[in-house]
Simulated scan of single mutants.
Amino acid sequence: MSTTQSERLRELLEPLVSSKDLDLEEIEVASVGRKRVLRVVIDSDEGVDLDEIAEVSRELSAKLDEDDVMGEGEYTLEVGSPGAERPLKEHRHFVRATDRLARFWLTPDAGGGELVARILKVDDEGLDLEVPGVKGRKPTARRLAFTEIARARVEIEFSRKSKSPENIENAEEA
């Protein structure tokens, strides 16, 4: 997809999404066989539910029908949320992931490698994390600057423990 089309799509769709107090996270035009698919990802601090996605989808479809930004050919519009293992790219993504477990790929300056930790607090410079203990050890606290993060994403937790003040205090003492 050309940068021009991407910019035009964003300019056309972002005001409508923003008017719903939602963020336009991603726009992608992909070819699937002979068909084109326009994927639009939306989110908010509270997340999005299926009713919001359906409403935005109808309104985006009407808006796209009024404009020629997608050209004359047929395409399918798919509107959705970032998903369970969402990538964390923007500051707001990290804020939304507070109290969630995340996987971080560290920059070479930060020692490289991967780190899995719970995001406890986010500020302008970085994150306060709780690194789970291994083999019965207590969790430890760690500070990670945004400049040390090459990429990050939320981890799926099937048996998430509830947040307890005792665990946080122990992590802060370590």
Results as ranks from 00 to 15, higher is better:
Glu157Val: 09
Lys63Met: 10
Pro15Gly: 06
Ile168Gln: 07
Arg137Cys: 00
Arg34Ser: 11
Leu120Asp: 12
Lys135Leu: 01
Gly136Lys: 00
Leu127Arg: 02
Lys89Trp: 05
Leu60Tyr: 03
Val69Gln: 07
Arg160Cys: 08
Asp124Ala: 15
Ile156Pro: 04
Arg153Tyr: 14
Gly126Phe: 07
Ala30Gly: 05
Leu127Gly: 01
Lys163Trp: 12
Arg103His: 11
Pro132Trp: 05
Gly111Ala: 10
Leu12Asn: 04
Arg153His: 15
Val40Gln: 01
Leu64Pro: 05
Glu157Ile: 11
Asp68Phe: 10
Tyr75Cys: 03
Gly71Phe: 11
Gly136His: 01
Val95Asp: 02
Phe94Tyr: 15
Ala62Phe: 05
Ala174Phe: 08
Ser81His: 04
Ala171His: 02
Leu101Gly: 04
Val41Gln: 02
Ser57Trp: 09
Leu16Asn: 03
Trp105Glu: 14
Asp68Tyr: 08
Glu25Arg: 12
Ile156Asn: 04
Leu9Pro: 01
Arg96Val: 05
Gly136Gln: 03
Ser164His: 12
Arg96Asp: 15
Arg160Gln: 15
Arg151Ala: 12
Glu52Ala: 11
Ser19Gly: 13
Met1Thr: 09
Pro132Thr: 05
Ala54Glu: 14
Val131Cys: 01
Val41His: 01
Leu127His: 02
Val122Leu: 10
Glu148Trp: 09
Arg100Pro: 00
Ala30Met: 09
Thr76Leu: 08
Arg39Met: 13
Val131Tyr: 03
Lys35Tyr: 08
His91Asn: 03
Glu66Thr: 11
Glu148Ile: 04
Ala30Leu: 14
Asp67Ala: 04
Ala171Trp: 01
Leu115Gln: 04
Ser164Cys: 07
Ile156Ser: 08
Ala171Pro: 01
Glu7Thr: 15
Ile53Asn: 06
Asn170Val: 02
Glu169Ser: 11
Asp43Arg: 05
Glu166Leu: 12
Pro132Gln: 02
Val116Phe: 00
Thr3Ser: 06
Leu127Ser: 00
Pro108Gln: 12
Gly136Tyr: 01
Arg142Cys: 04
Glu26Pro: 08
Leu106Val: 09
Ile156Phe: 13
Glu90Gln: 14
Ile42Ala: 00
Leu144Tyr: 08
Arg10Cys: 02
Leu22Gln: 01
Asp123Trp: 14
Ala97Trp: 06
